[in-house]
Nucleic acid binder design. Structure first.
Lengths: 159, 159
DNA sequence: TATTGTTATACTCTATAACTATA
DNA sequence: TATAGTTATAGAGTATAACAATA
């Protein structure tokens, strides 16, 4: 018994690996925020512009952003107000609104992607070879990852 | 002119690398949220428990969480209410409150760290060697990263 | 009945600024 | 004057639930 804890401390090397991923992601997020602000957008709006692959229904954009569809309404409202995207009626299903870029929106998307990817903090300092190794290791990690509750049936989230 | 955009599309390989980092980080964050909820904590509260290296002033915890000190007050209020941490007067400077864990808090911290690091989604599927390579590449990226606006002044980040 | 999108609402996270008590 | 911590407040982000229009 004594005061011995039920859990050993995790491997310090593992802690460093995880913290490095989180720190790098934090920098990428901070960069997104800064670039968004330069264009008078919130981070969520900028992310929508970068993520949208036109044409796409609202619901698909929500899926790509990993958020509820109700959030997308407000984000797209603002982007539409600024003349960056438009909602187009779908000829085959009148419930659906297809999102498309305006010319200004498409240009902005290119500018944002250039800043966020070409100049990605940290990652852009690696050589092509190093980045290739990093990419392959991350692919490996994601490939082998099994989401919790995926026992071959459809996964739902208990809340 | 012919509608040619001012920006080329970024290198698809680069896009994949960045998106992999963000996806992995998203999974780590979702895991934090799930583990926090199991213990009736919000993600921010759980992160404070995991991050706190006792004893530490409020201000230092805020720095480690990369957030404003005003946020820490509420987080620690709740952790203190649950008997996980305590605020102790600093004998040398009465402005300072040193945060320390209770026994329950220290035990919880161990449990959370075990879940968040030992079972880190994605990363825990790599072999020791693969994880070592990943860690070294991420270290390299962070080492070479120059924060914007760091023109010769001292900008470090102690881990 | 099920689905797309909208609205209303609430909760969390975060930053800013003003305040206190110390130093 | 400067710093540690608190309080009040406001802005983003997100989720849930109820709803209208449509399938």
């Amino acid at each position: 018994m004594s005061g011995r804890s039920a859990h050993q401390d995790p491997d310090p090397a593992r802690v460093e690996t995880v913290d490095l991923v989180l720190t790098l992601s934090f920098l990428l997020g901070a960069n997104l925020g800064a670039v968004a602000a330069e264009h008078g957008l919130t981070p969520a709006q900028a992310r929508a512009v970068v993520t949208l692959a036109e044409p796409a229904p609202m619901r698909q954009l929500a899926a790509r952003l990993s958020c509820d569809k109700s959030n997308v309404t407000g984000i797209v409202d603002e982007l539409e107000k600024r003349g960056l995207v438009a909602r187009q009626a779908d000829p085959h299903d009148r419930r659906i609104k297809q999102l498309v870029f305006t010319d200004a929106g498409r240009t902005l998307r290119g500018a944002l992607r250039a800043r966020l990817y070409d100049e990605a903090p940290g990652i852009s300092t690696l050589t092509r070879e190093e980045e290739g190794q990093l990419r392959e290791l991350l692919r490996q990690a994601m490939r082998r990852f099994t989401p919790p509750g995926a026992d071959g049936c459809n996964a739902h989230r208990p809340s």
